[in-house]
C-alpha cells in the first residue's frame, strides 16, 4: 500500500511539474517572441522614417532632373531615330541599386530584361547598375553581362556617377547598334512604372530619316551630342530609379510595421490568456491541495 503510494507520488509530482514547466515555457516563449517582434517593428519604423527623408530629397531632386531627361528624349523622337535593321547588336542597361527591402522595384526591372533575353540572348548584352539586378540576372544570363556597377543606392546618384558609367560604356569593346535603359519611372508615392529609354549608336542617328531637317551638322558635333545625351539619360534614369526605390521602401516598411503591430496585438492577447491560465491552474492546485488535507 505504502509502496504504491510511494511509487505514485513522484509520478504525480513529475506530471504536475512537467505541465507547469510547459506552461511557464510557453509563457516565456511568447514573451520572447513578443520582444523580438517589437524590436523588428522598431527597426522597420525607423527604416521607414529614414527612407521617408531620403524619398523627400530624391523627389525634390527628381523634379529638377526631369527637364533634362525629357529634353534629351525629344530629339530622338523628333528626328525619328530608329535602329539600323541589319545590325542586331543590342545593349540593355538595368538601373537598380545595391539595397533591398524595397518591394519589387529591382525584380520588376530584372524581369523586364529577363523576358527580353528569353527572346534573344545571342545579340544582347547587359550592363547591370546596382548589385540587385546583377544578382538576379547572373545565374541564368551571366554570360550576357559585360559590365556591373555597385556602390549605388547608399547616396543619391550624381551626374558624375552617370558620366563615369556612360564613359565606361562608350569605351567598352562592345559596339552596340541600339540600346535601352530599363528603369522605374516614379509616378507617385505608391506607384512606379518600369519603362525603357532608347539609346542609339552614331550610325543609326546619322541614318535617321528626319536628321536632314537639322541644319549644319558634322559627325563630330553629333558624336559629342550623343555622348553627352547618354550621360544625361543615365543620370535621369538613375534619379527616377532612386526616387521609385525610396518611395517603394517607405511603403514596404510602412506595411512591415503595420504587420508587426498586428502580430504584437495577437501575441499580447495570447500572452495574457496563457498567463491567466497558468495562474488559474496554480490556484486550482493550491485549493485542491488544501481541501485534500
Amino acid at each position: 500500500m505504502f509502496g504504491r503510494f510511494g511509487n505514485l507520488a513522484p509520478v504525480l509530482a513529475q506530471n504536475g511539474q512537467q505541465q507547469q514547466q510547459r506552461g511557464m515555457a510557453t509563457l516565456k516563449h511568447i514573451s520572447m517572441r513578443l520582444k523580438s517582434v517589437k524590436n523588428i517593428q522598431k527597426i522597420t519604423q525607423s527604416m521607414k522614417m529614414v527612407s521617408a527623408a531620403k524619398y523627400a530629397r530624391a523627389e525634390r531632386e527628381l523634379r529638377a532632373v526631369r527637364p533634362i531627361g525629357d529634353g534629351t528624349k525629344q530629339f530622338y523622337e523628333k528626328a525619328e531615330v530608329t535602329p539600323i535593321a541589319d545590325v542586331p547588336a543590342k545593349l540593355v542597361i538595368a538601373i537598380t541599386s545595391d539595397r533591398g527591402l524595397c518591394g519589387a522595384v529591382h525584380t520588376s526591372v530584372a524581369r523586364h530584361i529577363r523576358n527580353e533575353l528569353a527572346i534573344d540572348d545571342q545579340n544582347t548584352k547587359v550592363v547591370c547598375v546596382g548589385d540587385k539586378s546583377r544578382l538576379i540576372l547572373q545565374r541564368l544570363y551571366g554570360k550576357n553581362i559585360i559590365m556591373a556597377c555597385n556602390e549605388i543606392g547608399r547616396l543619391p546618384p550624381t551626374f558624375i556617377d552617370a558620366s563615369k558609367l556612360a564613359d565606361a560604356i562608350l569605351k567598352s569593346d562592345y559596339k552596340f547598334n541600339s540600346g535601352e535603359i530599363v528603369f522605374n519611372r516614379f509616378k507617385s508615392v505608391v506607384s512606379y512604372n518600369t519603362q525603357t529609354l532608347p539609346v542609339f549608336s552614331l550610325a543609326s542617328v546619322t541614318a535617321a530619316p528626319k536628321l536632314s531637317i537639322y541644319d549644319s551638322l558634322d559627325d563630330e558635333v553629333v558624336q559629342s551630342y550623343l555622348e553627352f545625351s547618354l550621360a544625361s539619360l543615365l543620370f535621369y534614369s538613375m534619379k527616377e530609379g532612386a526616387c521609385s526605390e525610396q518611395s517603394s521602401r517607405m511603403t514596404a516598411m510602412d506595411n512591415a510595421s503595420k504587420n508587426a503591430g498586428e502580430m504584437i496585438d495577437k501575441l499580447t492577447l495570447t500572452f495574457n490568456r496563457t498567463r491567466q491560465a497558468v495562474i488559474t491552474r496554480e490556484l486550482i492546485e493550491i485549493i485542491s491541495g488544501a481541501s485534500a488535507l
Binding site: 556591373a148 556597377c149 550624381t158 558609367l165
Partner: peptide
C-alpha cells in the same frame, strides 16, 4: 559636395567579373 561620386564599375566576361578592370 553635391558632385561626389562613389560608383564602382567592373567589367564582366563569361559570367565572371574581371578583377583588375575597375574603371
Amino acid at each position: 559636395k553635391r558632385a561626389d561620386t562613389h560608383i564602382k564599375i567592373t567589367k564582366w566576361e563569361n559570367g565572371k567579373p574581371i578583377k583588375e578592370s575597375t574603371y
